[in-house]
Amino acid sequence: MSPLLRTALQVFLSLLFAPFAWGLIRFLKSQLSGRSGVSPFVSYAQIIAGFRKENLIPPMSSWAFTGTPYVVLAASVFLVFSLPLMTLGGWASPFSQFLVFIGVLALADTFRIFGAIDAGGVIGGMGASRQMVITALSLPTLVLIFSAYALKAGTTTIDGMLMSGLTPFGQPFLLLVVIAFILIALAENGRYPVDNPETSLELTMIGEALTFSYSGPYLAMLEYAAMIRLLVFMMLLANMIFPFGLLLPNGSFQSILVMILCTLLKISIAAGLTALLESTIAKMRFYRLQEYLASAFFIALAGLALVLVTEQIL
């Protein structure tokens, strides 16, 4: 199969599965708290309904407000386009440089913050100040995480890192890196214990506060972008731990089926674990987030140190 076809397939499936993954977490969380919960497919309806609604734009806002949904959505689409989520060695794999990945995340976060401040709303400004703290503390940790990986794998593309076949079971440093990555993934996607994506209390919001002034199609775009980003982190994490079920360059048409099944399995496991985590722990006080993010940083640093030490010895 040609790399272009495989990349196209990955983009298509990611965009298709993203709302499902999001809805699945919500559904499983309801189940765990003893409610029947809404179907995981409701998030598709949520996106479609958003596009049909009126788009209200605050009168004082500028291009930063209107541009944000496009930038954020484009950033998310770029991630599913370039990263090895379902296929290795895809057409766009050279773009999966880890610094590009982190840069695109930073771009999206920056624009979300711009959009929130630009609307001039009270809650948006509050959410922006909180998101700045989280982004500023979590992205450097991502640099450390992938630096450690890159050193060991001898390549700076995430595609190449997964191709190298390193697993946390054979490489202890990777275990630390994966733990740090989980902590950062929760923070970057606004999940527990950093943020509560389902909160309706204005004063405790972070992620929701950023989209507070958006409505209709723009809100749907931002929500869709968040769903895609969640899927990206889920799949990356799953592939780091279990790099199987990925579509390889020499893959047959049968392996497409295997890939789809494995993807759904990975999504289900990741969603189940997220839901379990969110049902059992309390949200952290905002002032304790530095401790949380600093621990992620030092775990990643330990992983990097371990790589450097073992490289020296061997």
């Binding site: 969380k29 765990l32 708290s33 527990y192 509560n196 969110e278 059992t280 722990i281 309390a282």
Partner: peptide, 11 residues
């Protein structure tokens, strides 16, 4: 519910 999460609240 507010402190910990909606799980305890719904129960």
């Amino acid at each position: 519910g507010i402190g910990a999460g909606y799980n305890g609240m719904k129960r």
